[in-house]
Computed example of a mutant assay.
Amino acid sequence: MQADIIDGRALARQVLAEVAEGAKMLDRPPGLAVIIAGDDPASHVYVRTKVKRAEELGFLTEKIQLPADCGEARVLEEVAKLNARDEIDGILVQLPLPADINTLRVMAAVDPAKDVDGLHALNAGRLTQGSGGLIPCTPLGCMKIIKSVIPDLTGSHAVVIGSSNIVGKPMAALLLEEHATVTQCHIHTRDTKFVCRGADIIVSAVGKPGLVNADWIKPRAVVIDVGTTRVPKADGSGYTLKGDVDFDEAVKVAGAITPVPGGVGPMTIACLMENTLTAAKMRKEAKENEWPVLS
């Protein structure tokens, strides 16, 4: 029996509709600013899509384009300006940054109350404590997808393949918060295939096309494919997107699975919009009550 193919675009539309309704309750549109440095083609595609979604929702939207040789000081200067602007609720620094820029230093410079990527150390710490804050968009989107299939994760065995600060680590923390038993695999894990075969849920986020084969998957498991790697077409006519999962084979075993594209990607952008609204609401409430936004 073939797995249910999870429609990330449909779920994203639901999230965006909720964001649109929530934004109407504010006294001004939420504000989102995106900083992009360099000429990475994929980054420009992602930024255009993010800006377009924000504009469709009526957000105040601003894109700051910097050259690849702008240097770290220039990026930090732009971040500081956006931190100081009251009409900007969310700041997104598009990754990857040019190699000469320290990504962690830039992320640390973003006001954690405006950190809609959820990558500031304060937000990461609040996530591990289960005490709120802004959650990284891709793990948040993955969790919404998983819960659309399994509303109660209590006691489920979840395997996360990948341990990055952007997806792997926060994904594991979110699953733990939902009372799943979590195993995190990475490049040094021995026999990842064996670990995955006992999982009710697999989330793969390593960027290695075809890594997860059908024989890695427990029958009827939920498989979330975060991988999006650009692979040249055989005829040389361009690129195609490939996930970490061998979809054609995995769909014959899994209970539910996300496609690439059309799975996690749309939910990541929808959750960015949700985070921007959340940041705007938190900042509004803090201002009205004269308390710190995050503490």
Rank of each mutant, 00 (worst) to 15 (best):
G243H: 00
K287H: 12
V212S: 07
H179Y: 10
I91D: 02
A33P: 10
L11Y: 08
R220H: 13
I101H: 06
I201F: 07
S156A: 14
P96T: 07
N83P: 11
D7W: 04
A158V: 11
V195S: 06
D86W: 09
V79P: 05
Q129N: 10
A23E: 03
D115G: 08
D7K: 08
V51R: 12
E77N: 10
A54P: 11
G168A: 03
S204H: 11
A3L: 07
T229W: 01
M107T: 12
N213M: 12
K169R: 15
K144Y: 05
G162F: 04
G262F: 09
E18A: 14
V212F: 04
A214R: 06
I5F: 08
V15C: 01
N213T: 14
G198F: 09
I145K: 06
V182Q: 00
L134G: 05
A199E: 02
N165A: 03
C137T: 05
K63G: 08
K193C: 13
Q2D: 14
N275Y: 02
N213Y: 03
N123E: 09
V160G: 00
T192L: 13
S43Y: 11
V19C: 04
A109Q: 10
S295F: 12
L104G: 10
Y239D: 12
S163F: 12
Q65K: 14
N102H: 12
V75P: 13
G125Y: 04
P266T: 10
I91G: 03
R85Y: 04
M282R: 14
K208I: 13
P232D: 00
E288D: 15
